[in-house]
Amino acid sequence: MGIRGTAGMDLAWTVEQDGGVSLVRCRVHNDEAVPRRVRLDSRLDGPVLPPRRAGVPERGWDAGGVVVRLAPSESRGVGFAAVADSVEPPVEVCAAEIETDNARIPGESDQSLAVPAETPPLTAIRTLGDHRPPRETVTDETADGSSGPDTKTDRPDDGDGDANGDGSEVDGDDAVPTAVGEWLDAVADRVGRAERLTDADLDAATDVVKETNGVDGVSDLRRRVETDAERLRAVSDRTAALAARAESTDVPIEALERLA
């Protein structure tokens, strides 16, 4: 946590570091009685990863920082991440000027305070709904071979899906489909129970709670299903990307055979 005041601008920040990525949160306050425009620059040694909507950086951001407009006495919170170690301070007020009714006199004001122009396609992307088909639909498309050949479904909910080395870690030699199949079966079992509990009546819920070793078991189930959802998404993203790459390959076997 740090605080700094520069020329009528108060800046406070916190930095969190996790796995090589620094997350910077700052709050900037305009102390003056006039609207002002301020540029905050990252001091971290890596490109700024700005907040995005539908894949497009929010307005005002570029690779070095952000330009914000502040009404008199207004405060704004901004944040970004960067793949870099944190430094103190992580941000600095690089320029601040009085906002002049949007009309900017060329040559007279600091170029670094210009907000990047908004093109119609960017406006469309930002203001209209996300075009991407939902992840779930992509999973269906790519996970058709998921039901493994041998399905030992009698395992309880402590299958190998919960430990950190889950089914994605290949421990057997060519046991990949079996491991993946087992993991998915364990997940399907948990999701099935969670589904039965969703909007369930008392009788149905009692049955599931009994099966799941009481209320503690149910709270455990909920946590696990949340983790399952995250993992399934991650796997789905990866398999979808791999499938797309696999589809776009074209091994020129005829040409190679001719050359051999």
Binding site: P121, L122, I125, H131, R132, R135, A240, A243, A244
Partner: peptide, 15 residues
């Protein structure tokens, strides 16, 4: 034709 391909599209490149 794939939904995975549609998901991977970055519309900012269209222009």
């Amino acid at each position: 034709r794939t939904l995975a391909g549609a998901r991977a599209c970055d519309l900012t490149r269209l222009e």
